[in-house]
Nucleic acid binder design. Structure first.
Lengths: 246, 246
DNA sequence: AGCCTATCGTAACAGCGTGTAACAGTCCCA
DNA sequence: TGGGACTGTTACACGCTGTTACGATAGGCT
């Protein structure tokens, strides 16, 4: 991949300047836009690898723009906003943003997010970042991404918590691939909780979460057949997954 | 996954030789290249799982080559360089390298990085990740690589630990061939790349491991019929093995 | 044959990674 | 505002793995 091309969108010129300067120093190629028309213009002109989009764009809603862009093109988007309320955050994700960061932000954090999103895009590692309405079948089970429900082989619905569902989505998106706890935690965090702490995946949260999911979807949780432990590494979803796009 | 294929790129022949020798000992298949043309040639000829690319390639810039390779193909790259300044490192990342290591490097560190990148790389599913799904039959016993289980002649399943299973796979792959402890240890480590195992199998780990496996699969562990000791050399799997590809 | 030494087998132990029950904090909703 | 669902933390138990130590043994040597 050559130098990544970023598009910084903000109606505040000073903010544009600061972000641009910082990101250029870090080696990215940075373009700017102040409104919807300029965004479209840039997208038409040439490749853009990632958009950093301010949520408040004058009287336009960045969230709406985000949704529209998503519909038309497959450009990764990081939403930037001064509003850090959870409510706002959620809105961003539902609209299809790949990540969310609150102003004022720590430059290093921004950098980390940018790289993470770019890297993800390159690998198309995870479905979990897009709202997806696909239906997954695995070992008799079904996960319906549209209704967000899980059906056991016998057809009965199993109630998973939000976090358990997220974990399931992550492993469904990466069958047969060993995932470290850190990878899982990062993905889960970005998925749901744009919370600013990307570090400090301190304890055994993932272990416990895995245990809880196992207790609901494994026939014999003591000897997992699907979500297996890869000692010294992490976990693997060791079952074939069939995805039916919805 | 079959044996990973690495491409070592360095214009210094001595450095190529050292790295190649070390990595081959660790069980990788290693090819070498000294310039851009040779890299391309190797990439065209066959599958390459990972490139170890020197940053200073005579008068060419490894960084540039890295960027170009990234554009055209999705080969993981580890940049190797004598320049350890942070600035340089950053450049490497932004250009798309998967990791960066400074010369002179600790061999174990190199190994750890290589394994980490290979493990990560597997998630670009198009590539060579393939489970070993063969079924091995030996002296009435069965090892099912698909389900990763071992069946005794009486049909009952025998529980082997992960390490014991690995050892079994190694000797099954080399029936009637005397294996030294070092060969076994190296192969075991490569098999489970991703785990940053400690190197330099100091002690008698293999002996003990062999003993444990024997206690589970030999009729009379005191007088092994299958996994025999080759005094002064190592161990031999002295039974015919029939492999049925799956 | 008898001795000597390198080599091997393995029990015992220690360290680490993982499973999980119990607890505590948070969020949400009536 | 209280209660229940959800989630992370902690602590303990346990299995896996490598190390160590000691005894057994093979094979060479005199």
């Amino acid at each position: 991949m050559s130098i990544p091309r970023l598009l910084v969108v903000d109606d505040d010129a000073e903010m544009r300047r600061m972000m641009t300067e910082f990101l250029r120093k870090k080696g990215f190629m940075v373009m700017t836009a102040a409104n919807r028309a300029q965004i479209v213009s840039h997208l038409d002109q040439g490749r853009i690898d990632l958009i950093l989009l301010d949520v408040m764009l004058g009287d336009e809603s960045g969230v709406e723009i985000c949704a529209e862009l998503r519909l038309e093109r497959d450009v990764p988007i990081i939403l930037v906003s001064a509003l850090s309320a959870d409510h706002q955050r959620m809105q961003g994700y539902e609209v299809g943003a790949d990540d969310y960061i609150a102003k004022p932000f720590n430059p290093d954090l921004l950098l980390a997010r940018v790289r993470a999103v770019l890297r993800r895009g390159r690998r198309s590692a995870s479905l979990a970042y897009r709202r997806n309405t696909s239906i997954y079948s695995f070992g008799g089970w079904t996960y319906d991404g549209k209704k967000d429900i899980v059906l056991a082989p016998d057809g009965f619905q199993v109630a998973l918590s939000k976090r358990e569902t997220s974990l399931l989505k992550v492993v469904l998106a990466n069958p047969h691939i060993p995932l470290t706890r850190e990878e899982i935690a990062d993905t889960l965090d970005v998925n749901h909780d744009g919370a600013t702490q990307s570090e400090a995946a301190t304890g055994r949260a993932i272990d416990v979460l895995v245990g809880r999911l196992r207790s609901k979807i494994e026939r014999n949780p003591k000897e997992p057949e699907m979500l297996r432990t890869e000692r010294g590494t992490g976990y693997v979803f060791a079952v074939d997954v069939v995805v039916k796009d919805g």
